[in-house]
Design a protein around this nucleic acid. Sequence first.
DNA 1: CTGTATCCTACTCGATACTG
DNA 2: CAGTATCGAGTAGGATACAG
Lengths: 122, 122
Amino acid sequence: MKVEKISEKYSCVASCPMRNVIAHFANKWSMLLLVILDEFGVMRFNELSRAIPDISPKVLSGHLKTLESIGLVKRILYAEVPPRTEYELTELGKSLIPILNQLSEWARRNLEKISKNLRKRD
Amino acid sequence: MKVEKISEKYSCVASCPMRNVIAHFANKWSMLLLVILDEFGVMRFNELSRAIPDISPKVLSGHLKTLESIGLVKRILYAEVPPRTEYELTELGKSLIPILNQLSEWARRNLEKISKNLRKRD
DNA sequence: CTGTATCCTACTCGATACTG
DNA sequence: CAGTATCGAGTAGGATACAG
């Protein structure tokens, strides 16, 4: 296949899946959130905070908003005092989980090898 | 499952696959590079540049270095004039491709839906 | 051809404090 | 409880020039 053909498929066109879809959640926080939401089912803001100890509320809130606007996560606000908000995966979000789990499996399988590779760099 | 258990599995421990492995290539450029390298087989620096028109040489070089240090990409430098360098996937890199392709398929399938979701945000 | 050097911008991230 | 506001630090990304 010619380079130009590949370019058409992945780069130039506005319909490149990597650029237009995956770029929005291809980072450690978003993927982590999706996998955790899958395992736990329904979670509140504070539960997510505790599940990922080293994420600040601002960053957590930001990623949740992004995931919600993509349509991967559903946010349900209950008009109560004190306020309660629940986050859970949408159907679209759930459909992504098997792939994310495979990715996670792959990472787990190759964790040692990759850590060794990374150490060699130093 | 308790939140604390999830925390142990994905967040606290140094062995969390998402944090220690996936975080290194979970971005649009790296994933794009891996998929393109898979389709083309062996590519030179310039071919990659042309395949992804809107990546600067600095950024391309940086991502290739990272992928190389993870062990996903192999870099072969031929001592010629003019210089020639060839990039290709390692076995480890190839083992990741099926998953990346599934991700890409998923993205392509849901491209329209997600674009619509994102537009609603504005 | 294959990058590196430089400069600059923009975004991301993190900590903390604070509001409804 | 569920976030937002603010500030600051660090880093990733982009344009361009140019070196081996």
